[in-house]
Amino acid sequence: MSATHTFSNLIPDAILDAVESTGLWSDSRIYPLNSYENRVYQVGIEESSPVIAKFYRPGRWSEAQIREEHETLLTLQEQGTPVVAPLAFEGKTLFLHNGIYFALSPKLTGQHPEADNLDQLYQLGELIGQLHQAMSTPFTHRVSVSPLLQIEQAAASILNAEYLPQRLKPDYQKQIARLHEMCVAQLHNYWPTQLRPVHGDSHRSNLMLHNDQFHLLDFDDCQNGVAVQDLWLHLTQTENPRQQLSEIIEGYESYLPFDIRELGLIDVFKSARIVNYAAWLQQRWHDPAFVKAFPWFASEEYWINHLNELKSCEREWGNMSR
């Protein structure tokens, strides 16, 4: 059964049956939340607060990888790190219903960080420093980051499919080759001998200001990586990116020293993220939710803009590490 077909079976009754299989009693109110890789719903509970039900995309992570994510979150929660951990029922946090793994977590309300708020950037740096200090032991089952391999595989996938317009392919191949060469050189200059556990996707939408404290959400992409992976996503295209970076690092170093050599990896991770995003949309294009949410993906304009993004990576290379 394909992932798309499996998700298509997540009708309201199936969602309620899954939630109630844990022993909770739903009030039948279901609200889909903004998630495409997995399926996430807010589900009302009788005489209690709503819960968040997350249904994992089949075939993406193994049971061992999901359990390691949950164990990490429970440990972080016990240590006082502000994260949202899964709810346990009779000692279990991961459940299987109709062939789909799912988990429940408490609903957290609040606001996402402001992109250019320097005080908040300092607080985010503190939070990520606290997280990295608490996650000191590398993952056993989760993936380890390999940005060069990611670029190679994503670009090959794009070039071998029919979505990238034929007339753009020669220019795309040249641009990917150029960025690949620059990434190889940068990784030769510095790549840590030991990777460390990181959140892996700590963009603003995965952070929530709740009761005057930032919380990290959605550890779906937690992995072995490098510290800067969890920091650079908070740098925005403003007039003072260096000041933003300074605030983040200063907050981070309230908990851990930051190896300044990692700044040279920002361009590598940025390039990989841009190529991977296009390849991800292409890979999931059979999923009706993607066609509805990203209708512009199949247009020539999208691919022109994507190519221009890659060219911008080359033009701006090294700005953050100088």
Rank of each mutant, 00 (worst) to 15 (best):
L149E: 07
E162T: 14
E239N: 13
V184E: 08
H141S: 11
L256G: 06
R204C: 08
D218Q: 04
N224H: 12
Q186G: 03
V198D: 00
L179A: 04
R196D: 00
D218W: 00
L263D: 04
Y277E: 10
Y172P: 09
H203S: 02
L187P: 01
N206K: 15
S271N: 04
V268H: 01
L233N: 05
Q173V: 07
S254R: 12
R261V: 11
S202D: 05
P192Q: 12
N224G: 00
I260S: 14
F219Q: 02
C222Y: 07
Q173F: 04
P165K: 09
L149S: 09
N240W: 02
P192R: 11
E239H: 12
F258N: 00
Y277F: 15
P147N: 01
G251Q: 05
H203T: 04
A154V: 06
M208L: 15
A185Q: 15
P147R: 03
E239M: 08
C222K: 05
R204H: 13
L148W: 05
D267T: 09
Y190P: 06
G225P: 03
H234W: 12
V184R: 03
F214T: 09
I151S: 05
L209F: 09
L164G: 02
G251D: 03
W232I: 00
V143S: 08
E250C: 14
Q166T: 12
E239C: 06
F269C: 05
A161V: 11
Q223A: 03
W191D: 01
E152I: 11
S246M: 04
H180S: 10
N240T: 15
Q173L: 12
P165E: 03
P197Q: 08
Q223P: 04
G264E: 10
Q150H: 13
L263W: 15
Q150A: 12
T236C: 09
Q194L: 08
I176E: 01
V143E: 06
I176G: 03
L209M: 14
D218H: 04
P192I: 06
A185H: 11
Y190T: 09
D259L: 09
A185S: 13
I274K: 09
K174V: 13
G200D: 02
D221E: 06
R196Y: 12
Y163W: 07
N276G: 15
D171R: 15
D171C: 07
T193Q: 15
L164E: 02
H188P: 00
L159K: 11
C183D: 05
A155T: 13
L187D: 05
E162W: 03
L217F: 03
Q150P: 01
A185F: 10
A154K: 09
I248C: 09
R242Y: 12
S202R: 01
G264R: 10
M208S: 11
S246F: 03
